[in-house]
């Protein structure tokens, strides 16, 4: 297991958001995390990436315990994420946005910058090349010099994915990457997610409400409801699970949704 959560518990002011969640992601796997609104999916992401501090349990990634680490340390260990609501850096170009991802893989400080040391210049070239490579990978290299927030919505989503890729992750957490995309863009997204795994060897953990996309792309699906893990398995197994059907707002409607 690349990522292993054991008995993760998260409470906010007496409200238990996550009840002893046990959950894992295998090396180079395509896994989805689904569940009704408010099930705790994004909270789980935030526990993995260090934005929330769970009260109990453990999160082990690649042999490292993540629970006490700050978000930037988690990223450095190899977990990248995107945000549910786009969080691009305003007023900066697409390329500059993606260059952010390389920060944790480079070292030059103020002294090197002021004196333009050979090492610093080499590193700058490397940052730029890697960022351009990530943009080529997601297919928007020709827009690299535009201000990121002026791109079409679907392309802004790709900037976020490219930015996450530029951190050179082993695991990528995508929080509702299909939200707001039209059906053509969703098909492209499915292709992109597969290529992230196939060509880059990066494991992907996906939160998504679009069941069609989830069923097509995931090898394994985990279902969360009211902070509890209620099912886990392949698309077919999850689709037939009565507990899952019930979780999705009454049985009949649930069946319709799946």
């Amino acid at each position: 297991m690349l990522l292993k959560l054991s008995d993760v518990q998260l409470r906010f002011a007496g409200n238990t958001v996550l009840h002893d969640v046990n959950f894992g992601v295998a090396e180079s796997a395509l896994t989805s995390l689904i569940g009704p609104n408010g099930a705790g999916k994004t909270s789980l992401f935030n526990c993995i990436t260090g934005f929330y501090k769970p009260q109990g349990g453990s999160v082990v990634f690649d042999g490292h315990e993540l629970l006490r680490l700050k978000p930037h340390r988690v990223t450095k260990l190899g977990i990248a994420r995107t945000f549910q609501n786009l969080r691009l850096f305003r007023e900066m170009t697409v390329l500059e946005n993606v260059m952010a991802g390389m920060h944790c893989r480079t070292h030059a400080g103020a002294f090197a910058a002021v004196f333009r040391t050979p090492g610093q210049r080499r590193e700058e070239a490397e940052i730029r090349a890697e960022a351009e490579d990530c943009l080529r990978f997601v297919g928007i290299l020709d827009e690299k010099d535009r201000i990121a927030t002026t791109l079409a919505y679907g392309h802004q989503r790709r900037v976020e994915i490219a930015r996450a890729l530029a951190t050179r992750p082993k695991l990528m957490l995508l929080d509702e990457p299909a939200a707001g995309l039209n059906s053509g863009e969703k098909d492209e997204l499915i292709g992109l997610i597969r290529r992230i795994r196939d060509e880059r060897g990066v494991a992907v953990l996906l939160i998504e409400h679009d069941m069609g996309l989830v069923m097509k792309v995931s090898e394994r699906i985990t279902v969360l409801d009211h902070g509890r893990l209620i099912a886990e398995g392949t698309a077919d197994e999850v689709r037939r699970d009565p507990k899952v059907i019930e979780a999705y707002l009454g049985q009949e409607e649930g069946e319709a949704a799946l």
Partner: peptide
């Protein structure tokens, strides 16, 4: 030179969005 460097960009990232910057591996 600072503005056009890794550190200079990191300042802008942190100024625009601290959480996104942290998620990119920047120690704010």
């Amino acid at each position: 030179r600072l503005a056009n460097s890794r550190l200079g960009r990191a300042w802008l990232y942190v100024r625009h969005d601290e959480d996104a910057a942290e998620a990119m591996g920047i120690d704010r």
